[in-house]
Nucleic acid binder design. Sequence first.
DNA 1: ACCCTCACCTGCACGC
DNA 2: TGCGTGCAGGTGAGGG
Length: 301
Amino acid sequence: MPELPEVEHVVRALRSVLGERTIVASEIRLPKLIAPLSVSTFNRKVKGRSIRGISRRGKFILIELASHLALPHGRASDTQGRGAGSRKRDDNLILAVHLRMTGKFLYLNADDELPKHSHAIFYLDNDRRLVFRDQRQFGVMKLMSTSDLSQTKGISELAPEPFGDEFNFDYFKSVLKRSQRSLKTLLLDQTKVLGLGNIYAAEALFRARINPFKNASQLSTKRAARLHQSIIEVLHDAITDSSTSRIDLEQPDGFSYGEAFERFWQVYEREGEPCVTCGAKIRRATHGGRSTYWCPKCQRR
DNA sequence: ACCCTCACCTGCACGC
DNA sequence: TGCGTGCAGGTGAGGG
């Protein structure tokens, strides 16, 4: 489900409730979620750590967990006594979470019923629980020391953040020039362009009035500039759009995407509907195993 | 290095 | 009603 704008809002929602909380204990019901760590190792490493910060890299949610030694002295000395070898003294941990298609975080009271597909439960020091729920079980959690983040496979290869200076036109042009793939496929490659998924890739191409099937290396400079701008804008607008930000960690579904959210989409899931610009019927085709939508008139080849 | 296909899962909407 | 099929917003492994 989530692309960068939704992940950004999950991060903000988590930040608002997890501020200075401490994880008292955790429970993993789906071991592959945290592989290759074992459940017992994961639980042991996480236990007693306070949440120091929550951020985002691409579509990864990064939850920073403070070193045990930062805790009040009673527990700190306990850690030192046994764990000198098994735990790095000075390292904070990062819990990197990818929601993939259906991952969601819930913030529940102690007596709330756990919904189906609750795979990880973090018991907090305010008697509430942070629950990771994921119907399709594609989501992943990687626990690592902070210093390992930049070398972690799946994260180190990510393209620059779309709102940062590094994602400038020169970078984008060089990515286009080297690729023989279609633009639609290229825009979904997180190692080239970060943050788009199937929806916003289609929306960015529509805004730029460029055909999704066009070969990336053959895009004119003028069109490339339009596409570069559209990518940044569509992500920015989706974050700003009130409907995207309607993410409620207390709802069983975590997000309440309603009609308001879908109104943001101009081509996605609008096959047969009139283009908002020219009135032509929006088309859909399967491309690389995924649906893509475009206006045949505004986005000619 | 690049690019493609398939695999990972559950659930839902559809046609028969 | 049930059953089979295709589809779902993401990525990674493994092949060419």
